[in-house]
């Protein structure tokens, strides 16, 4: 910055240099306008992140954050040997893969339906937005009530239909509770994928479809050889954003099943160590591992493709 300023100042006699100085002034203005935001972001993001990573090499406790000793990689070594941590990693991977997969599939079906011409389409589109508008904690509570083993409506319906012989403990059984957690996340997040897919569907060139129909292509053929390839970039963006969201999942799991080992994600495990067991050093090592995973995925995203700014704004 300083270089650019002095260089343009030294040669300000020619019109060309005057132009340059104008551009240099603009650049200085840019940094001036950026500075407040960058300073705040440094204070609330970069600094806490740096401190968290620093804590992960210490034995700090929550009650006294200043009295710590450097322990090197000990926390990471413990982490690598803790079966609970690896279970949390496994849970997170299962949760991410299954929920994002289902959300993509379901979001695509809903988007295709919304894209068709039918009466009351606006109303249907509004209805689909409802789960998206409900806070995660609230949607988790709503589903916890519906999945209640004794009085829940889900068990009542399944019993009445004769599909199950006795009430299922949706939030108690290890396998069922994972399924329940995934079901709630899918309900809440599918509108996000549907919105992105719908946006892509609505700008598809209609001539292609007319040409395909004249050539006698069936609906299935049209879908797989025209629609899907054309909306693939938008779907990919949705999958990446959802994937990153799922990797850091906390709210839905914590509210539905607490710290239960059967469903605990990496975030749930790390927060339990950090806040409930007060072990800031160890907990920070866990969160740093999660950060590295997310950073890796983000780096892949940044290098793999350009993210469409408008789509992010419409759906978050």
């Amino acid at each position: 910055m300083a270089d650019a300023g002095s260089a343009s100042g030294a040669a300000s006699s020619t019109p060309w240099a005057k132009q340059l100085s104008l551009a240099a002034r603009r650049r200085r203005t840019a940094w001036l306008f950026l500075m407040p935001m960058l300073l705040v972001l440094a204070a609330v993001a970069a600094w806490p992140l740096f401190r968290t990573i620093a804590f992960s090499f210490t034995d700090a406790y929550l009650s006294d954050l200043s009295g710590w000793q450097f322990v090197g990689l000990d926390n990471y070594l413990y982490l690598a040997q803790d079966p609970q941590w690896w279970r949390a990693v496994g849970n997170t991977v299962i949760f991410t893969v299954v929920s994002v997969g289902l959300e993509t599939l379901l979001g695509l079906v809903i988007a295709l339906t919304l894209n068709a011409h039918l009466p009351g389409r606006g109303l249907l589109r509004a209805a689909v937005l409802i789960p998206w508008a409900i806070p995660t904690v609230v949607s988790a509570k709503m589903w916890a009530w519906m999945l209640n083993d004794l009085y829940g409506v889900v068990n009542a319906v399944l019993l009445a239909l004769g599909l199950i012989a006795e009430p299922w403990a949706w939030l108690g059984d290890p396998v069922l509770s994972m399924a329940a957690v995934i079901a709630v996340d899918v309900w809440k997040a599918t509108p996000f994928v549907a919105l992105l897919a719908l946006a892509a569907l609505q700008v598809l060139p209609q001539q292609l479809y007319e040409a395909a129909r004249i050539d006698g292509a069936g609906a299935v053929r049209i879908f797989f050889s025209i629609t899907l390839p054309l909306i693939r970039p938008a779907l990919l963006v949705a999958v990446i954003f959802r994937g990153l969201d799922a990797l850091r999942v906390f709210d839905v799991i914590y509210v539905l099943t607490g710290n239960s080992a059967a469903t605990a994600s990496m975030s749930v495990y790390a927060r339990q160590q950090l806040v409930e067991f007060q072990d800031v050093g160890y907990g920070s090592a866990a969160t740093t591992c999660l950060f590295l995973v997310a950073a890796l995925v983000t780096a892949l995203l940044v290098t793999a493709g350009r993210v469409n700014v408008g789509q992010r704004s419409a759906a978050t």
Binding site: P48, L49, R51, T52, F55, L244, F250, M266, S267, F291
Partner: peptide
């Protein structure tokens, strides 16, 4: 905007 909230938890707590 992408990195996990929990990744800054102890640093934010200290701040």
């Amino acid at each position: 905007s992408m990195f996990p909230q929990v990744a800054v938890l102890s640093g934010m707590f200290e701040l």
